[in-house]
Design a protein around this nucleic acid. Sequence first.
DNA 1: TTATTAAGTGTGTATTTGACACTTATTGTT
DNA 2: AACAATAAGTGTCAAATACACACTTAATAA
Lengths: 256, 256
Amino acid sequence: MSVTPSLNPHVSTDCVIFGFSQETLRLLLIRRNIPNRLTELNDILYALPGDLVKDDENLDKSANRVLAELTGLKGIYLTQFQTFGDPLRIAKTKDRAWLESVRQNPDARVITVAYMALIDSQKVNLQPGSFSEEAVWVPIHEVPELAFDHNEIYEQALAALKERVQMQPIGFELLPEKFTMGELQSLYETILERDLDKRNFRRKMINSGVISPLTEKQIGVSNKPARYYVYNREFAQSNPSSIFNLRMDGSFTLFN
Amino acid sequence: MSVTPSLNPHVSTDCVIFGFSQETLRLLLIRRNIPNRLTELNDILYALPGDLVKDDENLDKSANRVLAELTGLKGIYLTQFQTFGDPLRIAKTKDRAWLESVRQNPDARVITVAYMALIDSQKVNLQPGSFSEEAVWVPIHEVPELAFDHNEIYEQALAALKERVQMQPIGFELLPEKFTMGELQSLYETILERDLDKRNFRRKMINSGVISPLTEKQIGVSNKPARYYVYNREFAQSNPSSIFNLRMDGSFTLFN
DNA sequence: TTATTAAGTGTGTATTTGACACTTATTGTT
DNA sequence: AACAATAAGTGTCAAATACACACTTAATAA
């Protein structure tokens, strides 16, 4: 009778990195070429970027490192949203080849702390990929089958994004410094998967105080040029309650 | 030059268990007597209930086990809210004695997945404590210094509770099957740390549809007896959006 | 009988929401 | 130079919701 020795699990962080471009919400994925001994072709496998947590790292730092190694960016909106630790989450046979290539002990359980990152995809300079590995932006409605339980993680992240964007002014993290009201509305419509009324949207956003108009306008567009706005990060962070169910006094609506 | 060998971290689940009795929100803590070799007295140390995750357990199951071992209860509202993994989170010298008594390797890093439980404290039959260990209810404003980073975990849990109670009908999990409107309001006032208007509160709760009146009323109280209500768990779960920023059609208020 | 306690009840005003359509400023096309 | 095409920008009204507010009722205790 053999008893499996109790081996502590590995702990990793995985990042669900959202970007927004061309009216589409996108996910930053790792594409790996996995040599297949039988076919002599490469299998292509997609996964969320992630890595084992290092001995001297806390979890946030680990996730930030993963993000920075991939995008070169620091100080990005990055928030932990859920931890996944099913004993069988890495047990799919499809994932064996990958694990064998990156782990000393590919059988060990891996518990992963999942983070959600929101980045202005214009800022990203994807770090040059290696022979076997490369980062790619994938529209969220074209997310392929991912390694391990990463499809589930991504779906939870998207759900969390949808929820949080209604409560907190985080959508701005996906836009460039200067953005138009149209871009902002388009972003919200994309995340929430519904149309919003232009005039009501403007009114709420402006009344909320979290954005400020610039005098600068678009140039070179073949229609009336839109005014640019900026996000008041400091203001928004000192008014943490919902910006959207806003009362005149800036308070959150609940009871009373 | 010695290199610390990279030892995988331990992974545990810790439960922040809330109860509500005598108009007070309470926390279920473990009190341990730690023999102190110098003084020959016991040091008393408080901590959140928790345990290492077992090899064949997923995280939810582990947290449920911790909860069941302590309270004898199953099917309790229990939700993961954050994972804590600072490398130094168990490094306080005060915590050494405890760790040495429960871990084969007290130096190993421990990453903990924190859960929040809401229970009807009337249902709980605290499991008999051992010589060295016992569970106690502590009012949240009298929470003592806790082991490790458990004070921080508790504070995050309380903040999460405050947030979620505004978004989802979870407060009911802290009350008995049958409760009066006064008890419900008192619960909300306690969690939110503010007074609520009696008439507006009643109206919102009743209009939300998540509770139903019984014909039964209090007996033996020296004032007008209050009607009992029950929570419609099924209804609430099939109407997951905020019950509190409720529009006429039952929808959540956002844009439009 | 009276005092005490908490339950229970309705209305008016202020604010917010949500629906709705035309004008404006720019570039591209003819 | 006129016109087409495009997206920006703008105001009002009715309906729903929020919020403030005080007295009556039903029970027990004294």
